[in-house]
Simulated scan of single mutants.
Amino acid sequence: MAGFSHLNQAGEANMVDVSAKQITTRSAIAQGYLYANDAVIQGISEARIAKGDVFAVARVAGIQGAKRCADLIPLCHPLALSKVDISFALEPEQNRIAVQCFCKLDGKTGVEMEALTGVNIALLTLFDMCKALDPAMRIEQVCVLNKQGGKTGDWHRDAV
């Protein structure tokens, strides 16, 4: 099964052994969008969402999600994250909210999965808090924007 690092010789799922890897500073940023109607965008911008401060709650949820990635994704290594940051940008002209998750650590494996988990949990929390105003909201374009560190070095996505 050459080429698949998460399979053993018998083709079974296997957690990769990273014990021989060097500890390096690693970081990743993932991004996604919540598309919503004007009522949601305006309600958030005017702090009028009935369930409260949606960005504060989604920020904490996203941080928790990134920290719990290994509990959710099979074969992910549990990581001691040194930094998780969730940020939001209202983009009313496109009826969307941009959400980014930045994760960083000094470790032996990358943090892309943690960043992706963090951004998805933040997006899902926004959806949950606003669904009464727009049940047709949608989450789209979730991706890793960049990653730094490790054996493969730095990687940046071309324009999204």
Rank of each mutant, 00 (worst) to 15 (best):
L145H: 08
M137G: 00
V144T: 11
A20G: 01
V57P: 02
F55H: 06
F102T: 02
L145N: 13
V40D: 07
Q141R: 12
Q94H: 14
L124S: 12
A36T: 03
G118W: 04
G43T: 13
Q9E: 15
G153K: 14
L75Y: 06
F127T: 08
V160L: 15
A39N: 12
A28M: 11
T125V: 12
G150Q: 06
L123V: 10
V57L: 12
C130M: 01
N14R: 06
L90G: 10
L81H: 05
Q100C: 12
V111N: 06
F55C: 07
L145E: 12
A28V: 01
A115I: 00
K131V: 15
I121Q: 09
L116H: 02
I97E: 04
A80Q: 14
P78F: 05
I97M: 09
G150P: 06
I73Y: 08
H156N: 11
S27V: 02
D71S: 13
D17L: 08
L145G: 13
T125K: 03
L79D: 08
V119W: 02
I29N: 07
A2Y: 15
Q31T: 14
E114A: 10
A36D: 08
C103Q: 03
H77L: 06
L105C: 08
R48W: 03
C101Y: 05
M15D: 00
L72M: 14
S87G: 00
